[in-house]
Structure formats: C-alpha cells, structure tokens
Design a protein around this nucleic acid. Structure first.
Length: 115
DNA sequence: ACTCTGACCCAAA
DNA sequence: ATTTGGGCCAGAG
C-alpha cells in the first residue's frame, strides 16, 4: 500500500484503481511470447489513447532486472526505439522467441498481438 | 513558473 | 520512401 502526500489535501491511499503506470505494466505483462505490441497499442489497451509517449516513459523507468517483457514493445514502424546496444538486446530477445527481422524491422502484420 | 526533451503516433504533403 | 506538424504531458533543469 502506498501513501502519497498531496500537500494541502493530506494523504490518500493508492490501492483502489490502478494508475496509468500500473495499467501499462499489466498490459505489457500479458503480451504473449513471440508477439509484439506498439506503444500506441499499449496506451490504448491501458485506456489512454494518444499517450503512446508516456508508455515509453513508463518502460524507460523500469527497474534494471524487471521481469516485464519490455522487449515485446516496439514502435509503430516495427522497429526498436532503443538506441544502440539496447536495441540489439531487444532484437536478440525477440529472435529468441522466433521473431524474424528484415533489416532491423519486423512485420507488424505478422507479429502484432491481438488480444 | 517555464522551457526542453522524449523507448511515440499519424495524417498530410 | 521521407519529412512535417500537431497531439500529449511527466520529468528534469
């Protein structure tokens, strides 16, 4: 249970409805192996269309050894949005799940997760 | 209080 | 195939 101060409004308990961040975690964790989802798709599934960017921010804030399958999230063009080594790491993990790349881009029509 | 910057997206040009 | 402009808004300085 998390208590969060809000200045002049005292404290409130954050355990009732999940925050956007928590919904993102939930959605990402349910992407099956060998499938991918786009940032925009995650945002939409989390109930906040047009907030794709924030999904990226949430994922970027994940703790180092997170068990969340962050590598299954790619951008709308089927590419990794991570720079350099991180991007290669993501592609490596996806290849390990059977995803094939064509010049560092995968086919969304083929691998996109459809809940 | 304000500016800058994004693990983004998409329609239009 | 590429570029551009607008939408979005939480952090960091």
């Amino acid at each position: 249970m998390v208590l969060k101060g809000r200045g002049d409004e005292g404290y409130r308990v954050e355990s009732a409805e999940p925050t956007f961040e928590q919904r993102v975690w939930q959605v990402v964790s349910s992407i099956p192996p060998g499938c991918v989802a786009t940032y925009g798709q995650i945002a939409e599934l989390a109930g906040e269309p047009r907030r794709a960017r924030h999904v990226g921010r949430v994922l970027g804030a994940l703790p180092k050894g997170s068990r969340l399958p962050w590598h299954r999230v790619v951008n709308a063009s089927g590419r990794s949005s991570l720079p350099g080594a991180a991007g290669e790491e993501q592609r490596r993990r996806l290849r390990d799940e059977g995803v094939r790349f064509k010049q560092s881009a995968l086919s969304l029509s083929r691998y996109r997760w459809e809940p």
